[in-house]
């Protein structure tokens, strides 16, 4: 690997330029010096990042690179060893109502006594409070969210009867019900059918056109350029960050994935640099 040093310089420069100010306007989510560790092995080490508001950003990196952990640490789901997280320039706890989270669908037990509509209503619990009404207007809102993901006909179905793609759509509907400004999704396209993938992408694009911010952990390198406008590449510590055209290149991919990504595969990807 003769080019290693050179690659690192390029990457470092890119992180420098991507952090703050590369995008117009404020950062929706910014992280400084974030380290997360399971036992005594850091899963995420010393991450600085600023996710541009109003953009769709993919968090990519090899298996075990800390993609999901980064997301969970930003939300306080896993404890931070060090570092600060700010949402729209405010501390996390003050801005929680502005975020919506879509966990990996395999993280829950789907044989839970709830219908699809019940599950979407969970996204409203926070805004209606402990005793607020869930019928009437809030229920109409939940149904509208199901409509947006193409699941209106499934409202009364038991959640255990859904296919993987349908589960993912319902999770997205629950996040929509939260009415947030920032949407954090953990592998929303993992193991879903093509129709669901298109439906989800459509919803995310609509969110972006409404001025919302979307950040998704993404595993399919082949669709990065098509779906997202920015990438954050991580392998325990940040590798590259910025608009897809600048940060999603053969060099940065080699830096993040190393030997795990054979050169032939890189050629097949719709890389930013090779597109018109």
């Amino acid at each position: 690997m003769t080019g290693t040093a050179g690659t690192k310089d390029v990457v470092a420069a890119r992180i420098g330029s991507g952090h703050r100010g590369a995008s117009s306007g404020e950062a929706a989510l910014s992280v400084r010096g974030l380290t997360v560790s399971y036992a005594e092995k850091p899963a995420v080490f010393s991450v600085d990042a600023a996710f541009a508001a109003g953009a769709m950003t993919a968090i990519i990196g090899p298996n075990g690179a800390g993609k999901s952990t980064l997301l969970k640490a930003c939300l306080g789901i896993v404890p931070r060893l060090s570092g600060e997280v700010e949402l729209f320039g405010q501390p996390l706890e003050k801005a929680r109502h502005r975020i919506a989270y879509v966990p990996q669908r395999a993280s829950v037990d789907w044989d839970f006594p709830a219908t699809v509509l019940d599950l979407v209503k969970m996204g409203l619990f926070r805004s209606v409070g402990l005793f607020g009404r869930l019928r009437g207007e809030p229920e109409a809102r939940a149904r509208a969210c199901l409509e947006r993901v193409g699941m209106a006909g499934f409202a009364d179905r038991q959640i255990g009867q859904l296919s993987g793609g349908q589960q993912q759509r319902v999770f997205l509907a629950r996040a929509l019900a939260q009415g947030a400004d920032l949407y954090l999704l953990d592998e929303p396209f993992a193991g879903v059918d093509a129709a669901t993938e298109r439906a989800i992408v459509d919803v995310l694009r609509t969110l972006k056109s409404e001025g919302k911010t979307v950040i998704a952990v993404h595993h399919d390198l082949a669709t990065v350029t098509e779906y997202f406008d920015r990438v954050f590449m991580i392998n325990v510590s940040p590798v590259a960050e910025g608009p897809v055209a600048e940060a999603f290149t053969a060099e940065t991919l080699m830096a993040a994935y190393g030997g795990r990504l054979a050169a032939t595969h890189v050629d097949e990807l719709a890389l930013a640099g090779t597109r018109v």
Partner: peptide
């Protein structure tokens, strides 16, 4: 009864509950 909503949420999906501020 008073905490049935948060308890439901925590039982089904504790990560989501945390993210939502519970």
């Amino acid at each position: 009864w008073a905490l049935r909503r948060p308890m439901t949420l925590v039982s089904f999906d504790a990560d989501f509950a945390t993210a939502a501020g519970y």
